[in-house]
Amino acid sequence: MKILKKISVMLLAAGMCVTPTFATEAAPETALETTQAAVTTGYTMIQINADDGLELKDGDVFYIGYESGDGLSEDEIQITAWDVKAGQKKVELPEGSYDIFDIYYQGLNDQIESDGYGIQMDFTAGTDGGSGIVMAIGKNSCESLGQDYGNRACIKDAQHDENGQPITTTSQDAENLTDDSSAETGSEKGSSDASDVSDKSTDPENTSDETPKVEYYNTKDSKKKGLSTVKFKLILVACVAGIGVVGILVVKKKGIF
């Protein structure tokens, strides 16, 4: 009997130790159910602005990638051509803040690809509709979106990079462009100077720095001098001949010969 009593006491003590443990383990499950029940579903409205004259097709679809403010979950929203024609779309989400990290178009509409599209990059959802989202399709609508939201807008067109941000020239790129321009100008100037030197060295008229002297002769004076000399010689010959003839006559008259 004493042994049975001891066994009964031991079993009773063991039961009292195990019971609090089960109660403690069951408590978190009750708290988790309470936390899950506290999540409230809200919604937000997407306002879709499209350019006038934009032709939409049934296959025009946009996908908007977003994540929760705490970064623990992400999903995407699909916008169809019919949503664009309606001008808005209601999206149900748990209350909270969200960030949009991408938007991309899937379709064969060249006008949408060339004119571009974009979206506001942050929003909230709530039972009152939250802050809402602004989406733009077309050149003019994208320009308005960029002016209103700046770097908080994701725009996909030729003026923006793959992340939807404006393409800008960095100071380093500007410096490189300046250096290239200076080097090119210097090269052109050097080529021009070398060309001038080459032209001067090969031009026969530029072989000497001194200007060639030109002598002028008066041909009339030369002719006059020549004629005067001839006349003088003729007169001299005539005089000598005359004197000779007179001498011969005188000699004959006197009978010398």
Rank of each mutant, 00 (worst) to 15 (best):
D203L: 00
L177S: 13
Q172N: 10
D102K: 06
F232D: 14
D179Q: 15
T35Q: 09
T202K: 03
K90T: 11
G255I: 03
A50F: 00
N109T: 06
N176I: 14
N151W: 02
L177H: 10
Q120G: 04
T170V: 00
P212R: 00
G190W: 08
V61K: 04
D122H: 13
K2M: 05
V251T: 06
V214K: 07
A23M: 14
S195A: 05
K223N: 10
G226Q: 07
S191T: 15
D75S: 14
E74K: 08
A136I: 00
K89A: 04
Q172I: 12
T185H: 08
T44E: 02
E29D: 13
Q147N: 13
V18H: 07
G53K: 06
T40S: 11
D221P: 00
D75Q: 11
K89F: 06
V240H: 04
S192D: 10
P166Y: 04
Y105I: 10
D51S: 09
G118Y: 04
G146S: 05
G107W: 06
G107L: 10
T168A: 05
V9S: 07
E162G: 07
M121G: 12
A13D: 15
P20F: 06
L234N: 11
E55N: 13
A158K: 08
L108A: 15
L249F: 09
D110A: 14
D70Q: 06
G107C: 15
D52F: 01
A125Q: 00
G42V: 05
E76H: 12
G186D: 10
G255D: 06
I3F: 11
S228D: 14
T35I: 12
N163R: 03
Q106H: 14
I7Y: 03
S68E: 06
M135K: 02
D83F: 01
Y149G: 05
A50N: 00
Q78I: 09
Y149N: 10
S144M: 08
K233W: 11
K231Q: 12
G59M: 05
K233R: 10
Q111T: 15
P166M: 04
S187V: 02
K5V: 15
S187K: 03
V39L: 07
G164R: 00
I77C: 05
V230E: 09
L11I: 12
I79A: 01
P20E: 08
K225Q: 15
N140K: 06
N176F: 08
D83C: 08
V230S: 10
Y217T: 14
K85Q: 14
D180P: 00
D102C: 07
D161S: 00
T202G: 01
I7Q: 07
G69E: 09
Y98K: 07
A86E: 15
W82E: 13
E55A: 13
D51M: 07
L4P: 01
E92W: 08
M1T: 10
A241H: 08
N109K: 01
E67C: 11
K223F: 04
P212Y: 04
